[in-house]
Amino acid sequence: MTESAVSFSGLSYAYHPGKWLFRNYSASVAKGNILAVLGPNGRGKTTLLKLLLGALKPTTGCLSINGSVAFVPQLFHVSFDYSVLDMVLMGRARKIGLFSQPTRSDEEAAIVALDRFGMAEFAGRPFHELSGGERQLVIFARTLMSEADVLILDEPTSALDLKNQSIVLDWIARLSRADGLTIILTTHHPHHALAVADEVLLMMGGSQYSCGNAAHVLTEVNLAALYGVPLRRVLFEHDGRRIETLAPVLPMIDREDTGRPTAGQIL
């Protein structure tokens, strides 16, 4: 269809010789598409991202990325109380020379990037005083500053409350659709993948994986095999729109049988 922005084939990684974290994974993401990577802890999601970022070298296989990459880490710990503006300016690292300082035009571009996410008024605030969702938006602004073609996000919604999850997912979708960024993200929420991803990679460990169109790969059977927890695809209507989501079947206490007081009675 279109050229692929990110592709890898026969990709394998082992931290210790012979102990494969994953083997022979192949996938390709078309330019402007979103790939969601799912899998239980310890199956190598973060390792895969590090391979894509070039922080680790693949044990075997090859990968190619067309364009420059920006990374949004999962936990954002900053040792110093930089202002939001300072943080966003760091996105310009490739453009600002080794012996140079950010200029006025860099600062103006940073404010414009912040404004894109409704964060311009936060420019002078200390970054560490922001909420998790606000920080994520600041990092998105920083990504725009780097003018990257591929955006890699490590669990962008994991530390956020429901509202901020929704805001961040909305921006991820917009960055892909409006800005043409190719996005690769990891997540523990299959319904987030179903909501925004074009393609999905399920990392089942070893040489087992499943990759392809999100709606085709995120099946009840695949996800139950992946997580060992049954999930159901749920369809409902909201504001006249058909919404499709995924819900895990969680253990529930049978409240009528236990005879325990309900929340209302305690109050």
Binding site: L53, F71, P73
Partner: peptide, 22 residues
């Protein structure tokens, strides 16, 4: 002093700084 702005980038995590092109 000429490289002082770059020190900001080093105070990010290593993966993050690498991804920013440092």
């Amino acid at each position: 002093l000429a490289m002082r702005w770059r020190i900001n980038l080093l105070s990010l995590s290593e993966d993050d700084a690498t991804a920013l092109g440092v």
